[in-house]
Design a protein around this nucleic acid. Sequence first.
DNA 1: TTGTACGCGTTATCAC
DNA 2: GTGATAACGCGTACAA
Lengths: 356, 356
Amino acid sequence: MPSGGAKATIRAVAERSGVSTTTVSRVIQDSSFGSTSTRRRVLKTAAELGWVPNGAARGLASRKAGIVGLLFPDLGQSGAAEEQSPLYVDEVIRGAEKVATLAGEAVLIAAVRAAPRRALAYSVAGKVDGLVIMARSLSDKDIAAIARSVPVVLLAAKPGRRSLDHVAVDNRAGARELVAHLIEAHGYRDLVFVSGPAGSPDSAERFAGFCEALGAAGLPQPALPAAEGGFTQEGGAKAMRLLLNQGQRARAVVFGNDEMAIGALGVLREADLRVPRDIAVTGFDDIAIARHVSPPLTTVHQPMRELGEQAVQLLFSRLREPASSRRAVLLSTHLVVRESCGCGGKGEPYAGRRER
Amino acid sequence: MPSGGAKATIRAVAERSGVSTTTVSRVIQDSSFGSTSTRRRVLKTAAELGWVPNGAARGLASRKAGIVGLLFPDLGQSGAAEEQSPLYVDEVIRGAEKVATLAGEAVLIAAVRAAPRRALAYSVAGKVDGLVIMARSLSDKDIAAIARSVPVVLLAAKPGRRSLDHVAVDNRAGARELVAHLIEAHGYRDLVFVSGPAGSPDSAERFAGFCEALGAAGLPQPALPAAEGGFTQEGGAKAMRLLLNQGQRARAVVFGNDEMAIGALGVLREADLRVPRDIAVTGFDDIAIARHVSPPLTTVHQPMRELGEQAVQLLFSRLREPASSRRAVLLSTHLVVRESCGCGGKGEPYAGRRER
DNA sequence: TTGTACGCGTTATCAC
DNA sequence: GTGATAACGCGTACAA
């Protein structure tokens, strides 16, 4: 709290140090401005008065907020699952934060929750120089509306011809590589896929990659995933039970993400089925837990942090050159072979890159 | 990008809908203002023009940014360790974000990195209505200076008589409870503590709790931790090797956090020592991975998300009543008994609460 | 090198 | 229910 009462302003600092507000303004912006004595005097009074330049006034005058925004979907609603893992979103936030902070901008984050959905988004849009919007947080219509007033970069949205910059991960290629490994290195021919929530573009792309790999190997491609697990541990467990009860005896179950696979591992243990001996299991994302479960999970590493970094970088380029043509960045994944696929303790079937 | 060129302003909307700016301003703020026809007309033109109210102008006029800030220390510098885990900070951020967003405020986050340390902090301070500052991100002096211009809540700082609101976790009691369990339920009498980084208040408090429990049981209290592990997996592994090489044969090693304990688990496996049969190991924090390692880690659950929630809540109270007396919130931890302490698969020594 | 004066886009106050 | 007008605190031509 301010000591006296009213907060200090640039004018107070100026008067108290016997210079004009212009001088004060310049001194604090430009570390090489003015005579040494003036500088010192100004800086000193500013400190004495506890003056912190008002960001709103600055932003208004300079037409630059010095803030980039990040909008993401509310993950809490899927249930208690959010407690569990080092979420995707956290990593993205950290990546974004890093790039932004190093460039001297702060990051404004907000989950778009059900209630004041649009209101919040618009409010955020008004406060930032640019906005990164994660898939599934806003309707296309709202995104378009917002994009009229502030530069927007889309994150992990469904690939398609949009008019906005966007950055995503090559989910399809990642799934293809993973499945090809299961088929070629292990000789599995009976594979099923467990998807994430209904509308997830990530899940859809991974399933597409799954199918492509089967096709490339001359195996029949399913029209639909064998089950849906909502990207949660709980959902993965449920899906696994369903498959087991249906008498499905797939040799390998390819889960749309790690959390579902981890949930399934528990179910299989209880059912006295050994992984990978009886049934192989794989995930996707390579979350921190993946290497610690038993058996360690074979999965596809997704550069989540880099996703956030690139998104903000893209935003900065756009801010720099507003007129440049739209850009799309596709980040690549890589296969992380551990043991749940059937690769044993030491250098078994798979000859390629293994985790160091 | 704006379609025409210049962004729409409230004035443009006002003129185009034949009303004053005052009316436009009220219509968008107050969902029950004006005649229905006026409302509709204004809202319609606003949408057509793609007008998004300028946050800076709003903030300047209303003396309220609608933003709360969160400053945290840069964790990247400790090395690659940051990649590994569902960090503490992430949870705090999520908690803060949730409470703030539900109250209609956005959250501005920034890691305080080495370089423009203070500059960034001050810049953030100017942009927000209030600030949550995590321990070890800023010097006491800078904190004091910033607190003169904007309400500040300290997070997890060392308990002591400061003049600022603050929220923390009762690390000491948590450690005490954990160690008492090791002594009473398992009969261990030869325990050592591995600390975090040098200046960490969390680590210091946990060590204090460790000592108190030993004292209460009539066991000798060490003056210093047996080793230091920097709160990282790597560091924990190193510390464990050190203890082993020194010929230390403690019956139980109490690590200052989970990550170090997890690092140690690997070392013990390589050394052919069985946990908990040969040596018991415990952590602190209850990060997501803790339940998945083998053996599952006995640890102390720390309500990290709640920490963030409470901090923002405290900030809001302060904003509401600037003159109220300073408040301190101490959140309690709870013991999470799994297997690394010696409690077996099913209801062994420990009769109290177990993980459900 | 330093100062004057205006404008940034919105809200609050007061009048009608 | 609606409008005119004065702040809000700072940056920055432009002038000196």
